[in-house]
């Protein structure tokens, strides 16, 4: 067939649009308790499988290994260690940040998993894998039950 090309690019047809959706994510059974403990008690909790002995952080409602429902919660304290980290120099839009931000995966003893968070009160060149860190919480009246109720993790002196 004569699939004539439209040579004038101004005639290139397109339609603009977007999805008019907003989202509201519930925290779930385990997530709600986890964030509530951070908000009310400034502590990091894990959930423990009685059968396998695995402690999950962030806590899950179920054991991924054996599918037991997890009812037992364990206080992990506020101290962890840097498992791996990266230093971000650009923001999400690709613009240069005034100050680089250090993001780290922080693990807690033998618990399975960890938390991704920022590191603070430390320079990028001073961070090392295995470095002990502790959570710095916002003051109680500023806490909303969000992962950002923890301002950042800082090195333990």
């Amino acid at each position: 067939m004569s699939l004539e090309k439209i040579t004038d690019p101004r005639n290139m047809k397109h339609w603009l649009g977007h999805m008019e959706t907003d989202y509201r994510y519930t925290l779930g059974i385990a997530g709600e308790r986890f964030l509530n403990e951070i908000k009310e008690n400034a502590r990091i909790m894990g959930s423990k499988c009685k059968k396998c002995g695995v402690i999950y952080v962030p806590p899950r409602m179920y054991c991924e290994e054996c599918f037991e429902k997890l009812e037992e919660w364990v206080d992990l304290g506020i101290n962890g260690e840097v498992y791996t980290y990266t230093v971000a120099y650009l923001d999400r839009e690709g613009k240069r940040l005034a100050e680089p931000v250090i993001y780290a995966l922080i693990t807690f003893g033998d618990a399975f998993g960890g938390l991704v968070h920022k590191l603070g009160e430390v320079k990028p060149e001073e961070v090392w894998i295995g470095m002990p860190v502790e959570a710095v919480f916002k003051p109680p009246y500023e806490r909303k039950g969000s992962i950002t109720d923890i301002k950042y993790f800082k090195p333990i002196q």
Binding site: L16, H18, D22, R24, T26, L27
Partner: peptide, 11 residues
């Protein structure tokens, strides 16, 4: 409690 989000995508 919940987390709110609006995707910033255009097509």
């Amino acid at each position: 409690p919940y987390v709110a989000y609006r995707p910033k995508v255009r097509y």
